[in-house]
């Protein structure tokens, strides 16, 4: 049976792994390659590296760390941040990444998703969606809205897209996987946004990865069981040693969730 995936996420800023709270106030966690190796050995099913400065700075970023990661780890990994063209994507994939994830550039140019999927195959094109629940929107009824440039708080802005419309759109354009970052939950460890993820699941027929809010092992079983996501991404609980991956997988097995043993 296909296992549910546990995916540590490493936010990368200026060549270091960092972690912020609700996308702000980043602190340094450590160096990229040893952390990647540590998580691969600990039983992670996949890793995601987000270069969180790239899209908002508009600068060319040194990505040589991608091949240094590919040299040492033997599980799949995805690179996100600042990939704006087929040439950018090719560079990252040739360095050994298995997937690339695009977010802000897809909002600016949605056809980019189709162009990348045609060249590299749907399987390696992930679309990251940063979604914020705005209580005041939709005449006070509340609405999930897509945000852009979330790596830089001065440039973060709301787009014209509601979250579920945007997910449907990117899947129709050829996205092979969706990572839904629930911004209200990010870094606060109060649990995944099950309500939002269930709605996303209903409009998403490609793999869906939950992101934002993991604080306890029960949060993982909740999101797999209640929102039927294919994978769950988390950062601070792993970086700070709150949850060990082996312990988490053993717990999920007792909850009858299919996981790959460490």
């Amino acid at each position: 049976m296909l296992a549910r995936r546990i995916i540590p996420c490493l936010d990368v800023k200026d060549g270091k792994v960092v972690k912020g709270i609700q996308f702000r106030n980043h602190e340094i966690i450590g160096d990229i390659v040893p952390l990647a190796q540590k998580y691969a050995e600990a039983g992670a099913d996949e890793l995601v590296f987000y270069d969180i400065t790239a899209s908002s700075d508009g600068r060319v970023v040194d990505k040589s760390w991608v091949s240094r990661i590919a040299e040492v780890i033997d599980i799949p990994f995805c690179v996100a941040g600042g990939i704006k063209s087929a040439a950018d994507a090719k560079e990252i994939l040739m360095m050994g990444a298995d997937k690339i994830s695009i977010n802000s550039p897809a909002l600016r140019d949605p056809e980019l998703i189709t162009r990348l999927a045609d060249i590299f195959g749907q399987q390696c094109i992930v679309v990251g969606v940063d979604s914020f629940y705005n209580k005041e929107a939709n005449a006070g009824k509340g609405e999930y809205q897509v945000y852009q440039f979330t790596g830089d708080e001065k440039r973060t802005k709301q787009t014209g897209w509601t979250t579920f419309d945007w997910i449907e759109k990117v899947v129709s354009l050829g996205a092979g996987e969706i990572v839904l970052n629930c911004m209200n939950q990010d870094g606060v460890r109060q649990g995944y946004d099950i309500v939002q993820l269930k709605q996303a699941r209903a409009v998403c027929n490609v793999p869906l990865i939950a992101s934002g809010g993991a604080g306890t092992m029960a949060h993982f079983s909740d999101v797999y069981q209640q929102a039927d996501v294919d994978g769950a991404l988390a950062a601070s609980v792993f970086h700070k040693g709150v949850i060990a991956i082996k312990e988490l997988k053993n717990y999920l097995k007792t909850q009858r969730i299919e996981v790959r043993p460490c």
């Binding site: 049976m1 296909l2 995936r5 749907q122 092979g176 027929n205 490609v206 793999p207 294919d230």
Partner: peptide, 11 residues
Amino acid sequence: GNRLPHMGWNT
């Protein structure tokens, strides 16, 4: 009816 691509760890 399972989601495609078949992506992930399987036995």
